[in-house]
């Protein structure tokens, strides 16, 4: 476990020193700003950040893979993976270190939306508890997306391909499942809703803690981190 912290710091530093991160952050803030102005800060509307959170969920499907694409794939591409593999650290520590590194960066990115909240508080009296719980949901969804991004990054040495794989997986679980859930029969509907990310996230934006959703996010995050670890492990003996 003590190896995780240095790896986290290393990853964090890499994120903050990467120009892509700032470009992604800028674009992310432009999108969130737009949705905030047009969907949230509309006089007469209910004072709620739910429209913004819903929009951010969609934006993150494309933003997070861009943050995570270089996490492992770059190591392969630049050859530093050998150093990492031979270092006295486990694959699990490597993956967790990278995960936490990107996660902290993501949390910092979320913090940049706090000014929007401050503006909203200036013009209304929203239920702060609901909004804060929504941020908790954003962290959970971010963790899931990062774990998927890391998994994709482990699968290939090409960063762009890693990003595309991650976007593909996240789009399937975010957009496609949500869309097709309305068209299928009841049994398949139940299955789809069980893996429907926006549906699970929705409860958090409503200030409702549903243990189903909590278990879903945690378990799937752990699953993808596990899969990423296994993929990385497999590089040793291939």
């Amino acid at each position: 476990m003590r190896n995780i912290l240095p790896l986290t710091q290393r990853e964090l530093a890499a994120s903050f020193y990467s120009p892509i991160a700032y470009v992604v952050g800028c674009v992310f803030l432009l999108f969130t700003g737009y949705f905030f102005i047009t969907g949230v800060l509309v006089p007469g509307n209910e004072a709620s950040m739910r429209p913004l959170f819903a929009a951010m969920t969609g934006t993150l499907v494309f933003a997070i893979p861009l943050l995570t694409m270089r996490a492992v794939a770059e190591e392969f591409g630049s050859g530093t993976i050998e150093t990492l593999m031979t270092a006295p650290v486990t694959d699990t520590s490597v993956i967790l270190g990278k995960f936490f590194g990107v996660f902290v960066f993501y949390a910092a990115l979320l913090l940049t939306t706090v000014p929007h909240l401050i503006v909203l508080l200036s013009y209304s009296d929203p239920q702060l508890g609901v909004i804060l719980f929504g941020y908790v949901g954003m962290l959970l969804i971010g963790a899931l997306y990062i774990s998927v991004g890391l998994f994709a990054s482990c699968c290939t040495r090409h960063q762009l391909l890693a990003a595309i794989i991650a976007m593909g997986i996240l789009s399937a679980f975010t957009f496609l499942v949500d869309y097709f859930a309305d068209f299928v029969g009841p049994r398949l509907h139940g299955v789809l809703m069980a893996v429907n990310v926006p549906a699970h996230f929705d409860d958090f934006t409503k200030g409702i803690l549903d243990t189903k959703s909590l278990v879903f996010f945690i378990s799937t995050t752990v699953l993808f981190l596990f899969l990423a670890t296994k993929v990385l492990e497999s590089k040793r003996w291939r």
Binding site: V130, K212, V215, F216
Partner: peptide, 21 residues
């Protein structure tokens, strides 16, 4: 784990004060 959580779960209105429940 998810199957079990679908069957046995709790919903707690932590913050919404009846807004959505």
């Amino acid at each position: 784990v998810n199957w079990i959580s679908q069957a046995q779960y709790k919903r707690i209105d932590v913050a919404s004060s009846g807004l959505f429940g």
